[in-house]
Amino acid sequence: MQHILPHPTSTASATLNRRGAFRRKLQTSMAAYGFLAPFLLVLVTFTLIAVIYAFYLSFFYVNFGITIPKFVGWFNYKLIWYDLTHQGTFYISLINGIWYTAGVVSIQTVLALLLAILINQKIRFKGIYRTLFYLPSLTSSVAISLIFIWLYKPNGGINYVLSLIHIKGPNWLSDPTGFLAHIFAPHNGNLPYILAGPSTALIAIILLAIWTTAPTFMLIYLAALQDIPDSLYEAARIDGANEWQLLRNITIPLLRPTTFLVVALGTIGGFQVFDQIYVMQGPGGGPINTTIVPALTIYNTAFTNGLTGLACAEAVILFVVIFALTVLQRRFIDTSIQY
């Protein structure tokens, strides 16, 4: 700025110039907030106030639309503590949510990366493959759930395909036996809930979720892969690296920031799963609660049992769990890139 001033040493003109800069910034800011106004209005009303309101209501006894909020201190949190220590519904739904999220995130992240690497090769009909792969992510979870109610039935399409290779498929949607209970206690299935593992019914939904969301993350990986300079691979090839070494030492390390994003978004999404289970198993998360997840419990607490404040406290606990996991993942996955 200084070089255009006629007298850089003159304090008067410097003040004038500073005033000019101030006025310009003021004008720009006013214009900018004009452009931002609708967005900020929605953001403040339906997100920021909502977040504060959720924390606030978690300290109240409220039956929405029926009672006036009554301050109850930590009472809702004490109820949750009681539930957690006595294997109540929220406890069961958290365990199910952890199995679900761990299963979905671990497999879909690897699958998404593999699919992205496949599509990123020099191949013909790249667009066609990408379209085909993306189809399950494009469609609504409700429509896909309706299709899979039919495909998962005991004599449905999936068990028919399994029977072709001489596997007797399970009763996908109504078998409550835990995966680990199947292995370690095949006769009575008596294992503590936390050790029994995800039920067949929950595994059916985990597999469905991987199939539907992996392609979304594939597209994110694909975009990141295309940003890795070819020269890196060429240099490594000249040094005699094979394909596996290229993947291990160049591709995977350079994709770390994307992997963090994919894992974090997967975790946030995993703990929020609602649609598929509501449609396929109903709000109760059957069979015998083995597919109930935190989102369903919060929904039931608020809208079936009318305990709005308790539901908000449950949501706060869920938020804390997700937040802690995201922070841990950030620590665990080094996101700094070194070329």
Binding site: V51, A54, F274, P294, I298, Y299, C312, A315, I322
Partner: peptide, 8 residues
């Protein structure tokens, strides 16, 4: 997460 703000 959407669940946190769903009710409010």
């Amino acid at each position: 997460p959407g669940q946190l703000i769903m009710i409010p």
